[in-house]
């Protein structure tokens, strides 16, 4: 059970240097980790109509909207540095970028309050309610 003894350190000082990055939650799995010309292909072709956004990706129509991080919360993109060779060693992640808003996209369906990601944003607030100290 030695793997339970290893920890993942979050290098908090990296937050200061981390740039703001636009983040998009896409309604498809893209088998790729790495660079992409998001600004050139995606952002440049996105159409804004009030809150609602539309764009296409790989020929499919997407509809999206921007949502904010819950109050008191920050969006972080963590990146592992110096990945260790074994699962018994401690790992380190740093903050590579930060965000306070994200855009999520549905395949063809206009964004609405039943979207799972919108509902998931209830969680931090409710977690606070579950876990706040009980008064005597």
């Amino acid at each position: 059970m030695s793997c339970n003894s290893s920890v993942i350190r979050l290098c908090a000082s990296s937050v200061g240097q981390a740039p703001q990055a636009p983040v998009h939650l896409m309604p498809c799995e893209i088998e790729h980790n790495g660079p992409a010309q998001v600004n050139q292909y995606f952002t440049a072709t996105t159409k804004d109509q009030k809150q609602d956004k539309s764009v296409s990706f790989r020929g499919r129509g997407l509809k999206g909207q921007k949502i904010s991080c819950p109050q008191g919360y920050t969006g972080l993109v963590l990146k592992e540095i110096n990945k260790p060779g074994s699962d018994q060693e401690d790992r380190t992640v740093k903050v590579s970028s930060v965000f306070d808003k994200m855009t999520y996209w549905n395949l063809e369906t206009p964004p609405n309050s039943d979207d799972t990601i919108v509902m998931a944003m209830d969680w931090p607030d409710l977690a606070e309610a579950i876990h706040a100290p009980v008064e005597d």
């Binding site: 799995e29 980790n33 992409a36």
Partner: peptide, 14 residues
């Protein structure tokens, strides 16, 4: 949720 990936800045996170 199944079938999701991220665009983060100028990159894809699967």
């Amino acid at each position: 949720d199944d079938f999701h990936s991220w665009f983060v800045g100028q990159a894809v996170q699967r």
